[in-house]
Design a protein around this nucleic acid. Structure first.
Lengths: 335, 335
DNA sequence: CTGAAAGCGCTTACAG
DNA sequence: CTGAAAGCGCTTACAG
């Protein structure tokens, strides 16, 4: 019962169970060629000794880390949560775990955000953020891009949502509500660009005029607030706004409130991402759902198929987004 | 230039640099006993070969993973972001990295959320969440609790903020603004309990009556919304609310709005955590800052000192919280 | 199923 | 600084 004794190894387990180390190894990897009684004995010894296989030893000896590295932008914008969940679900059956790295958190300490993952010898890399010049992509391991990005990675698979279509649908919804003057506030990045194009598509098709404001590469609440202030000042006639994402939509709501406009009575607002934020009582935001959980599941499929066949051609999967109607849209005033 | 060649090892680097493997190992660990020219040669070879030391091999041979495991509740509530940042800053100088695990994400796949970390042989465990019965704490490695928790872990160090004091200060602030009927909406967990006590302390000292609502163990936006609806119904006289955290405060704002109350004109609201959410234009929430960044720094200090002296007694560090005045408090109507 | 053997890619002394 | 050696805790064949 001494707390400070040496950690149990596979040898200790074998000895306690009265079997060979080889057998223990087989049990650990769920081999079918182990008889029930022996398996029980080993499991009992594992429990008794509080044994946990050393990941370092397993990885080194097996030549495989069994982990997939995921890079996200920033823990603060929670759009990625459902994606992670889907990814993990899809990978679990194959015995793969995920490790996540936050770009902004690691920005200070290492030049290349991928370094840690490469040292870990991850089986694959999932990018849920815009690639940066500092990232040197290894040619040996599969790279899967989650979402639309501005930069292309040669050879990488892509799972994304049709952002252009999503934005178009959002605008079509506003038009169907009678809105004629619809603004768009945009940030930077690949998804933002497509959403902007979708906005344009819909307006052009309807013969309406564009009102676009984009003040920064960021897509934060503050960005949304600043853009909206500017938009309301420059184009007072607008009665609806499509925001580049939910955070920006939140900022738009603040700017509207400040300007004395009621949402949705005076101003309709649509966000993008269907993030946890949008589904609050306070925002109750109409938004576009990229179906991030399913997206995560698809990314998992791509990881697995690419691992099974490293030579297969890069593929691109695109999901259709869904408009989620909540409480921030209403018919235009003078419609 | 063949992409599929074998990954470089320390042997390849040694050969390319024309030195021994031992020397490469010394360079990797920044040994001072290496001459500049040889160091240059090794670094050049590392770059040339795109070499990254195998974490598995390093950990296994060195007998140390150099990583600290951090368990958080849930990526959705972003209060932990600054804590992680502080922790990482404090650990970086010692060459320790952090690995984070989200409880809710892992809930499905493994019984004990700590299992993964134990397999990794983390040097220490940081708990930024309420301990659950499923967690079996190893006696061999340091455990540090970040924040106030309902459950005690024998032998663990604690770094927390004085939640009781923070809540008391918040209430005192409201009282100084003339509020006589102040409600509190609370969730579950150790921090919530202390904040509740702080609320009581202040009211008792001022001879005021309590109005407390707590409908669940959760501390989400929805919880805050439900609690506030109930509070407004049961105690219509209240003019101010202290929420258990910022998410709940957000829900409170929604309930107030729904009830036709303006914040802060009709109802003052104070949150808790100074989370990214509170610092938005839309909420602009007066809140209590637990100084999570500093808290993370202190946790790092505890990790390091405990690693240096495993026998030292468990210590408890407590920070003084700060009231952050923003826009959700005003003088009471009939003060 | 066992047992002995080799090896994964490093670190750690240690003699020179 | 080098070089040879042992070892970290596993996995992977392989002969029995």
């Amino acid at each position: 019962m001494a707390a400070e004794r040496r950690r149990a190894t596979i040898y200790d387990v074998a000895q306690a169970a009265g079997v060979s180390k080889s057998l223990v190894s087989l049990v650990l990897r769920d081999s079918p060629s182990v008889s029930a009684p022996r398996r029980e004995a080993v499991l009992a010894a594992i429990k008794e000794l509080n044994y946990r296989p050393s990941q370092a030893a397993t990885a080194l000896a097996g030549g495989t880390s069994q982990t997939v590295g995921v890079v996200i932008d920033d823990y603060t914008n929670t759009w990625f949560v459902e994606l992670l969940r889907g990814l993990q679900e899809g990978l679990a059956s194959a015995g793969l775990r995920i490790a996540v790295s936050d770009r902004s958190l690691n920005a200070h300490i290492e030049s290349d955000p991928l370094d840690g993952f490469l040292s870990t010898r991850v089986e694959a890399l999932v990018l849920a953020t815009e690639p940066t010049p500092a990232m040197r992509f290894p040619s040996q391991i599969p790279v899967i891009i989650a979402g639309n990005r501005a930069t292309q990675i040669p050879g990488a698979d892509i799972t994304c949502s049709d952002d252009r279509l999503g934005a178009r649908r959002a605008i079509e919804h506003l038009i169907s509500l009678g809105h004629q003057h619809i603004g768009h506030i945009a940030g930077g990045g690949g998804a933002s660009r497509l959403r902007l194009n979708g906005y344009r598509d819909a307006l052009t098709a309807a013969g309406l005029k564009e009102h676009i404001v984009s003040v920064s590469e960021l897509t934060t609440e503050d960005t949304g607030y600043q853009c909206t202030r500017r938009l309301l000042k420059d184009a007072g006639e607008i009665t609806a706004i499509l925001a580049g994402n939910d955070s920006m939509a939140m900022g738009a709501m603040a700017a509207a409130q400040e300007a004395g406009l009621s949402v949705p009575e005076d101003l309709s607002i649509i966000g993008y991402d269907n993030s946890p934020l949008s589904d609050t009582h306070l925002l109750h935001l109409t938004t576009v759902d990229s179906r991030n959980h399913e997206l995560g599941l698809h990314v998992a499929t791509q990881v697995l198929s690419r691992l099974a066949d490293p030579e297969r051609e890069a593929q691109r999967v695109q999901l259709e987004p869904l408009l989620i109607e909540r409480g921030t849209c209403a018919a235009a005033r003078n419609a």
